[in-house]
Design a protein around this nucleic acid. Structure first.
Lengths: 134, 134
DNA sequence: CTGCATGCAAATCGTTTGCAGTTGA
DNA sequence: TCAACTGCAAACGATTTGCATGCAG
């Protein structure tokens, strides 16, 4: 593995933000520092950095993959309205795996859990609009 | 909503199988009955049937969406090796939502949980090949 | 009759890949 | 030096969409 300029900047920028950006979003972030970088390079490097355990890939359901500068395993909430993602400080529930192992004939190794709901901002908007309806 | 022949057959076929098929797989199933049906129609109808609550969309991480003729909410296990999906007879844990609601500033509504592991077949294969290594 | 639904093909979206030139160790 | 890495653009796989036609209500 070679620590190229591109790779270093991608890691740097990803560690600065808390927004769990998608690959194209990372690309936009990095372009401010390296205007000639290509999206392909961003994708390749995010993959490499994941493999090295320097960042984390959050591939939750249905949408684009997102990336997290933090390596510690944790759960996420996604806003159903604006797709914003935040961390949930709930410790990983290994007991779920144990339960599933007993209830299925699979060798259950891990699980993927994400919460869905409304972020504070979208919740406020919804409250307002339903109030207006009355 | 109009109950077209295509729509009826798609629902019928989906209720017959337990394999949690992807849209292209549903397309293959239905083609036996309706050889001229198009993949686009299958996609459109699966969407409509979901909206009507007649079937369920399982959009688990990273891969194609899958569809379930059952409407009752339940968890799934996915085989990391062959991507097969099965049901896990674990009751829905609403307590998780409560916990997440307390730990975040989101209005948590629901969660998505999927287990990952090895299905019996792939587990057997792995065991064999690791035994061979010794 | 009329507008929702269809088949078809082209378009889109996110991501991956092949290739020729570049660069860090 | 030289394999790993880059930028670029084309390829890809899943899904969506525009359009002219078809058919259920």
């Amino acid at each position: 593995m070679r620590m190229t300029n591109q790779r270093r900047i991608i890691l740097q920028e990803l560690r600065k933000v808390f927004s769990h950006p998608t690959a194209p979003e990372v690309y936009e972030l990095v372009k401010h520092k390296l205007p000639n970088i290509s999206l392909g390079t961003v994708y390749r490097n995010l993959e490499v950095l994941c493999d090295l355990g320097l960042i984390q890939k959050i591939d939750v359901a249905g949408t684009q993959k997102r990336f997290d500068g933090t390596v510690v395993d944790h759960y996420h909430v996604r806003c159903l309205s604006c797709s914003r993602i935040d961390d949930v400080p709930l410790e990983i529930l290994h007991s779920l795996d144990t339960a599933a192992r007993e209830l299925s004939d699979y060798e259950v190794i891990k699980h993927r859990l994400e919460f869905l709901g409304l972020c504070p901002e979208c919740k406020a908007k919804t409250d307002k609009s339903s109030a207006r309806k009355c």
